[in-house]
């Protein structure tokens, strides 16, 4: 019975200590002061595990339809490009200022998972739809239906292959009334 008391007291002590640290205000929330590498890795690990678990059962539709690129391109340009950049762009005020830094989705290495295309598509769909807490990534699913989100996923999948000129053509909304 004594050891139970010991464990409970220890846990209580940890909780109280945590609350005291939070209350003291010494934890920096400034976006220009990065986490220490261990905290960053831990948060990143928790984030990726959470997304993988939540997105595991999402059914991925056929994303090869060119109409999806035409529908998703303008939405990407309006909603995502200011943070996640576009072909030929290396940085923006938002990509520099946000923490954690939003991935540059015009690069093949970003946001594409570990080579598993289906899992990458599931991940991107889930992140666009639900957003990520305290990261600057909004939940677009509150105002956009699944079809529009899948169109953005289809566009993002192809974006690393686009030149700046192709990007401009596919994302221009002019003469585009028929696609929505």
């Amino acid at each position: 019975m004594g050891w139970v008391k010991c464990v409970v007291s220890g846990l209580l002590l940890v909780v109280v200590a945590g609350l005291l640290v939070a209350w003291s205000g010494v934890i920096s929330v400034a976006a220009d002061q990065p986490h220490d590498p261990l905290t960053y890795k831990l948060l990143e690990f928790a984030r990726e595990r959470s997304i993988a678990r939540a997105a595991a059962d999402i059914e991925v539709p056929d994303l090869s339809d060119p109409d999806l690129l035409l529908a998703g391109g303008p939405d990407y340009n309006d909603m995502c490009a200011s943070c996640h950049l576009k072909p030929g762009q290396r940085e923006s005020d938002l990509s520099l200022g946000l923490y954690p830094a939003p991935p540059n989705l015009s690069l093949a290495s970003a946001g594409q998972g570990d080579g598993d295309e289906v899992q990458a598509a599931r991940r991107q769909f889930w992140v666009i739809k639900h957003g990520i807490k305290a990261s600057g990534m909004p939940a677009w699913g509150l105002t956009h239906d699944d079809q529009r989100i899948w169109a953005m996923v289809a566009f993002m999948k192809k974006m690393p292959q686009l030149s700046p000129a192709h990007y401009q053509i596919l994302t221009a909304r002019g003469d585009d009334e028929g696609h929505h």
Partner: peptide, 28 residues
């Protein structure tokens, strides 16, 4: 408006018409 003049310099004979990107560009 889309700047389709950028497409004029491309060699259309070398385009892969089964590529969704090319098909989307042509359609636009």
């Amino acid at each position: 408006a889309p700047n389709c003049k950028a497409m004029e310099g491309m060699d259309h004979s070398k385009m892969d018409m089964s590529d969704p990107i090319i098909r989307a560009l042509m359609k636009k």
